[in-house]
Design a binder for these strands. Structure first.
Lengths: 137, 137
DNA sequence: TTACAACCTCCAGTTACTGTAGAAGCAAGC
DNA sequence: GCTTGCTTCTACAGTAACTGGAGGTTGTAA
């Protein structure tokens, strides 16, 4: 049960000190105990909780999604299906993103690589961006 | 040369009225002429410029990148290579994103689909997020 | 004792918009 | 000529998820 300062916690979880305080502000992390002079002190459980948050962020979960995940995790009697739903929906979002990005990449590649190096008058990139029809009629 | 109001321009380019004014604020669109009562009026050239911006945004170019692209487009004697560089770098960013998202998806899928539907105590999703090692030592 | 790093609070800035409040203009119908 | 209702105007606040800085304390090592 080694107590640590905010800098240690931040370093152990690859988080910036300001971000730790931010997570506390928005309620993702509980208010920690303080030393006599007002400095935050943390225990190993805080490392685990913050790691959970950072991993989840790494997977692209939003703060709100993580909040829900944490609630479920905090009350183990709650239904696991809620967590499954969050993860499943997130997975679908990512799949959609991949599909969109891929078709975007293909379209962009078509003219991004066709620059002949002359003056911008005949630039394929700008030309293509200009030649596209207005989004709606 | 039909002059139009901001609502018409917005509709023709699938843009919100507020967004058109925003683009003007940040200098992507020139300050338009006004009617006697102070309303903005636009011509076809504005439709083309705004379409260019919207298409570029659709391709994921940032406002700053679009600003550069517009500058190049506005002065056709400038070197086309600058535009090619912007597009090429953007393409690389997208490729990186696709790679990262794909490996993320695979990792997430591993445990997102393994929910047995019981109580959260044995939830695979939360367990996996908890079991991951802290990001740094 | 004197540096200096780490901590504190509070606040502004980032990106690219979106939404709202409150006032004014404009066209159509009665 | 008046009312209704839509569009426009300016100006500002809010979004997501932090990040960075100012200005001020505290703790520790030389």
């Amino acid at each position: 049960m080694t107590n640590m300062m905010i800098g240690d916690l931040a370093q152990k979880t690859s988080t910036k000190v300001n971000t730790v305080r931010y997570y506390e502000d928005i309620g993702l992390l509980p208010e920690p105990a303080r030393t006599a002079s007002g400095r935050r002190t943390y225990a190993e459980s805080d490392v685990r909780r913050l790691s959970f948050v950072r991993h989840s962020r790494g997977f692209g979960f939003s703060i709100d999604e993580i909040r829900s995940l944490l609630e479920i995790s905090d009350s183990p009697k709650q239904d696991c299906e809620a967590a499954a739903k969050i993860a499943q929906e997130h997975l679908e979002k990512i799949d959609t993103q991949i599909v969109q990005l891929t078709s975007l990449r293909d379209a962009l590649k078509l003219f991004a690589t066709s620059c002949s190096g002359g003056s911008a008058e005949h630039c394929e990139i700008i030309g293509a961006l200009n030649r596209l029809n207005p989004p709606v009629g």
